[in-house]
Design a protein around this nucleic acid. Sequence first.
DNA 1: ATTAACTGCATCACTGCTGTTGCGCTTCGT
DNA 2: ACGAAGCGCAACAGCAGTGATGCAGTTAAT
Lengths: 190, 190
Amino acid sequence: MGEATARPLRADAERSVRVILEAAERVLAADPGASLEQVAAAAGVARTTVHRRFASRQALVEALASSAARRLADAVDDGRPDTAPPLVAMHRITANVLQVKGAWAFALEQAAEPSGEAADLQREVDRRCVTVLERARDEGLIDAAADLDWVRRVYYALLGETLRGDPAGDPDVLAARVVDTLLRGAGPRP
Amino acid sequence: MGEATARPLRADAERSVRVILEAAERVLAADPGASLEQVAAAAGVARTTVHRRFASRQALVEALASSAARRLADAVDDGRPDTAPPLVAMHRITANVLQVKGAWAFALEQAAEPSGEAADLQREVDRRCVTVLERARDEGLIDAAADLDWVRRVYYALLGETLRGDPAGDPDVLAARVVDTLLRGAGPRP
DNA sequence: ATTAACTGCATCACTGCTGTTGCGCTTCGT
DNA sequence: ACGAAGCGCAACAGCAGTGATGCAGTTAAT
């Protein structure tokens, strides 16, 4: 609705948008209350340029959220959630998502209003996530009586905790720990 | 150091401090950037009174963090982490902490500087938490090879996710789910 | 090569939050 | 009952962030 007449930007303008969004993620992740001045400085751009590309602070944050949500959705799709064997898909999706969420933590935390593009994409991600869990359950990897919505939320929480504590570990190792913990917990191994 | 000459407050002043801290938690949890004006209004107090009791916004937030950290430490202690059977202690501590963290979410998220009272209390809570996990491991409830620091972090993440999604469920039911998920994950039950 | 778009810079107005002070009234402590 | 401590209210100064504008110089697209 809002960007109906979005005529194409010139190459340098498009580059400005990109560097501003990247800088905004870095700066706002460190301090959510940081000023647009700081964002502009981190982007190597004048503050007025930020205002030229994004009508308001809110518009910038929304664009940031949408951008990150697209990357996240792509990361999930790349794991073939509908066709790959569940365990393979879970591992691959987890490794992908860890990288995207690590690089776009602030953007993905912004709760977009339910009508926005970011919220749509997030719902789609949730849907695909549950799909994988259902397929895992059908294969006996997850208890038949388990509440899949709770399992999904636990999965998200494990991702978040991994990123909080292990900012730059090997994605495959971290993903293996997440999946293992999700499926088997901390209890004794037979 | 800072509050060396803290002569006792009059009863009404102490009451002001209490209602301001409670209001600050409510208001700042809803919007971390809210003004002291809003906090004062929610507390039913004039803005100048807030400034009288807390020299600056930062001082208010620190006092809030310390206050909440004390409650959290008490909640853990109440579960007898050193003496009760591990599973009993885990359940009781979880139920207690769910209530405290639910009521003081914002305050407990404030990362105090390492020298403050809040940080000391948080470290003490971490320590007692690991103690319980060690006792659980010694009883065979947790795998002998498990990384207890990771287990503790998973435990915290499960608490956080529970509070995010189930704001006001029965603490005992929610605690049971947290402990069960922590120890056994989502996999099939024998 | 020409034009339209873009950027940086300087400047301005506006807003909202913070922190302080002074004064009169009320409430607590003893 | 008395005095000290606390409160609400009003007013003020200061500051930072936001958003807008005009202009001169640069860059991309045809």
